[in-house]
Nucleic acid binder design. Structure first.
Lengths: 168, 168
DNA sequence: TTGTTTGTGGATATAATTTATCTATAATGG
DNA sequence: CCATTATAGATAAATTATATCCACAAACAA
């Protein structure tokens, strides 16, 4: 019942892309350095986000990955499904039919279980579809408008500290 | 996000024990034949149910496994936790702290995510703690009082067909 | 056009977890 | 004391998740 590490990685990527200067796509190789995985693996991951419609990518010089829609419209459900496919808890291996070879009652039990677990799935789908990346980022940074920077050059601390200095 | 096959196996075991003649514990070797796994493996599984307090076991001749409490008090949550431990979706690998080495914001983000996923956990815990084995069995057999039999000798169909014959 | 940068897709390796088995031992009852 | 059954530790097999490499395609710049 654990989500895969891929979901955690996807979340990190979204944070990077959401705070990336809007004009500049972020190269996946840069992300791979930050999350400490190989460039080729990071491309696999970002690809999943692209396929899901969360991110978009452009090849070529100064290309890279950027968000395909505003953070308000990116939900935790999107991220989970991008990495793992649809939420389906029931491990439907057909065991019940094999164990109770009596067709009628076995089939019936199978359906009851499918229904029970599908309801569990729905609880998660409804919940996670209401948690947006915007919610998390806003709560995390404690500000309405996200700081942006170019992750190729700067660190987040630089930007945030600079903002504090400006206020003084 | 799938439950393990073990949960499915546990469900089958509960069905067997719930319909087992109350006087007679069911030998795990008998269960293993039905679910088509080795006797030693089945003992591992039934042991988990015993540890969780769902089942009880007695060694020796005519020993075996039986339910430790009425089916009304056995919940799907009990079964899931018996097989998989507590429901915890968040794959907390510490990636966020590593990726955003800036302590303050990383720690904060980590906590936000823990909270978000813990709420998801709670939805499942609440839901599955309300689904009892009694509910499922009742719906599955369509009767209030479960048929009981000795699984060492009979099959479920035998008993159910016999009941229908009796009515005629 | 040619070379560089970046994403795509297939094959494959590594690691972690789940599933499963075997063996030795302990407990109970006949 | 013997047969039956559960318990517990070691280990094997299968599956899935994580990760890497490599050949290639798309964009762009010189």
């Amino acid at each position: 019942m654990k989500l895969t590490k891929g979901v955690e990685q996807a979340i990190c990527i979204i944070v990077l892309l959401a705070t990336q200067e809007s004009s500049a796509p972020l190269a996946s190789d840069e992300i791979s350095r930050r999350l400490d995985v190989s460039p080729s693996y990071m491309k696999k991951i970002t690809r999943k986000l692209v396929v899901q419609g969360i991110a978009m990518s452009v090849p070529g010089t100064n290309g890279g990955v950027s968000l395909a829609k505003p953070v308000e419209k990116i939900t935790m459900l999107d991220l989970i499904e991008a990495m793992e496919g649809p939420i389906e808890m029931y491990p439907d291996s057909g065991l019940i039919n094999r164990a109770f070879q009596d067709g009628q009652y076995a089939e019936r039990g199978q359906n009851i279980l499918r229904k029970v677990f599908a309801q569990g799935d729905n609880l998660l789908v409804e919940y996670f579809s209401k948690v947006t990346a915007a919610d998390l980022l806003k709560e995390g940074f404690g500000v309405e408008n996200l700081p942006t920077l170019n992750w190729n050059r700067e660190t987040l601390s630089d930007v945030l500290n600079k903002e504090q200095d400006d206020k003084k």
